[in-house]
Amino acid sequence: MDKNLEVIEQVSLEDIRKSEDLKDLDSVRIKYLGKKGRIAALMELFKSLPPSEKPLFGKKINSIKNDIQSAIELKKKSLEDKEQKSSSSGFLDVTMPGIARKTGSAHPITQTINEVITIFRRMGFSIADGPDVETEFNNFDALNTPENHPSRDIQDTFYLENGNLLRTQTSPVQIRIMKKVKPPVRIIAPGRVYRNDTPDATHGHTFHQIEGLYVDKNVSLADLKGVLHNSARQLLGNDVKIRFRPHFFPFTEPSVEYDFSCVMCKGKGCKVCKNSGWLEISGAGMVDPRVYKNVGYKPDEYTGYAFGMGIERIAMIKFGIDDLRLLYENDIRFLRNLK
């Protein structure tokens, strides 16, 4: 009986040693340790033994079982090592593209609007909104641009058959807000505006503006300069300078046009800035007291400033776009390019 046990142990160890791969080894495992394997057969035998022989025999079986198990474990490890090292089917071409859903891109105008909004929100401005279709009153009269005044000629307007118009500027939002809210008012209002201009590389019948308005006690032109310069630095870099030029807008007095120093040539003069060193951005000024009268504010109590910002203009500067029309062509190459 004991000899039989020894033979089983030897043969099993020999089988294990001769196993060439994990599959072989597994069949060896089943042959000896499986439910119907040799060790299981020995256990059947064990049950039939008289009680006096059981303890010793049981001990021996267990010992053989343990030996086989640890031999299998050892062999398994060495086979796995061997397989990992010599694996021929496993060449991994790490240069193949990864599996991913490519993400999309936001439109450059959206990107620009969001950036400007973020900058002004950090300075405490909230967001306001107004309709694209406006009344003549909000777009012109309330903004101190009466019908019989030549300042109306500056902008070619699209009129609707219902007698209203497509706003030519985001400034009517000023009127809507001031009619609703008492000072302090500090808002920016992004949106679409329309002018009956023939489209070319720098003009379109549709474009976007962001209107800014701040009315409170003791707001000054120096504050306007500070806020616009701060926004310029965040938009285009810390060394950007700002320049105010006197101008005329019916709803601000004093009015300015403001320029940023050219980001391309650092103000030295180049093609982009037409050798002037400056990029014209948009208009601004101190809200004209005549406008306060139109919305029911007391002109002597409050002062404030308003500014506009041409989004297309800023996007073109930021992204180096030389033709406005690219922005509305929606060529997927252009859009993905500016992801």
Binding site: R101, K102, T103, G104, S105, A106, H107, I109, T110, L327, Y328, N330, I332, L335, R336, K339
Partner: peptide, 10 residues
């Protein structure tokens, strides 16, 4: 954009 869409403007 996470679903792979790109924004257009007309």
């Amino acid at each position: 954009r996470a679903s792979g869409c790109s924004e257009t403007m007309s």
